[in-house]
Computed example of a mutant assay.
Amino acid sequence: MARNREPVLKRAKALGIEPQYMGINKKSKRQPKQIRRKKSEYGIQLTEKQKVKFMYGLQEKQFRNLFVKASKKPGEAGTNFLIALESRLDNVVFRMGFAATRREARQMVNHGHFLINGKKANIPSMEVKAGDVISVKEKSKSIQKFKELKEMVITTPEWISIDTEKLEGRILKAPTREDIDLPIEEHNIVEFYSR
């Protein structure tokens, strides 16, 4: 499987993303380059697509397949697509505060540290639904990372409730567009794939 190994801060700066959206509390010391040319419509759409792909840590094929699947659902294609991205297991683990970044969340899911409704879940792209309970495996609770979580105060979105003592979270409802606090203009992605 292909992995994105490029420096996060450098890529975030190039795409115009604040590192905090990636779960990193650092600032780059590099001076911004002066952009002399105005971006074309295609350039704006491409940058938006690359930005969202980078934020959620997906490869092109996976990203496009998810967009095609979301666009077949009733409603707005862009909104359905963002909701599908937010409903991925790796993103939900990140949103619950079990991981500092989406990359770390993806790795933890791959290593099999989580259960969905009591069943093993080791596929980061699994879609979680309202009512699902995501919990840390009993065997994994002894890991230092999870022990530290019990003392931490974690803020989660409205559509997720979390119990830090039991190390589990519940999906209260499906996320809506208003719940997604990332600076994304999804209409540019829809227009990009509509070409």
Rank of each mutant, 00 (worst) to 15 (best):
G97R: 01
K73L: 15
V109E: 09
T101L: 03
I154S: 04
Q50H: 10
I171S: 01
K38Q: 15
R30Y: 07
P19I: 10
L46A: 10
K53M: 14
E186N: 05
K139M: 04
I17W: 07
A84N: 12
E148T: 12
R177W: 13
G97V: 03
E191L: 13
N117P: 12
M96E: 05
E186D: 12
V136P: 01
K39V: 06
G78F: 10
T155L: 13
A14G: 07
K61P: 00
K150T: 14
K39S: 07
T156A: 08
L85C: 05
D179H: 02
T101I: 13
D179R: 00
I184F: 08
G97L: 03
K150S: 05
K141T: 13
Q34C: 01
K147C: 06
V93D: 00
H187P: 00
Q45W: 09
K49G: 07
V93A: 02
H187D: 14
S161N: 14
G57N: 10
V133C: 01
F94R: 01
P7H: 09
N80W: 07
L46K: 11
G131Y: 09
S135Q: 03
K150P: 04
Q20S: 14
T47K: 14
E178A: 15
N80G: 09
Y56D: 05
A130N: 06
L58Q: 11
P7V: 12
Y42E: 07
G112M: 02
L66A: 05
S161Q: 14
K61Y: 12
K13W: 07
A70N: 08
K72D: 05
Q45R: 15
K38D: 04
G75H: 06
A130P: 04
R102P: 03
V153T: 13
V133M: 11
L115I: 06
R195A: 08
V92P: 10
K10M: 07
K29N: 10
V128P: 01
V92I: 15
E48L: 08
S161G: 09
Q31R: 11
R195F: 05
R36N: 12
G43I: 00
P175S: 02
P183Y: 05
L82K: 04
K10T: 13
P19E: 10
G131K: 08
P74K: 14
Y56Q: 08
D179A: 12
I162M: 14
R103Y: 11
E86L: 06
L82C: 02
G78M: 06
A12L: 04
P32R: 14
E60M: 03
E138T: 15
H113F: 15
K145D: 09
R102A: 10
T155W: 05
K173T: 13
I189P: 00
I35E: 12
K33T: 14
A121H: 08
M1F: 08
I24C: 01
E158D: 14
K147E: 13
A100N: 12
K13F: 15
A105T: 11
Q107G: 01
L182G: 01
E86A: 05
S87V: 00
K49A: 12
A12D: 03
S142I: 13
F63I: 04
I24S: 04
K39P: 09
A2C: 01
F54A: 11
F192P: 00
R36I: 07
V133H: 01
R103D: 06
K120F: 10
E178N: 08
V8D: 03
T156S: 12
Q50W: 12
L82V: 02
G97Y: 03
K27S: 15
G75E: 09
I171L: 15
N188A: 10
K145H: 10
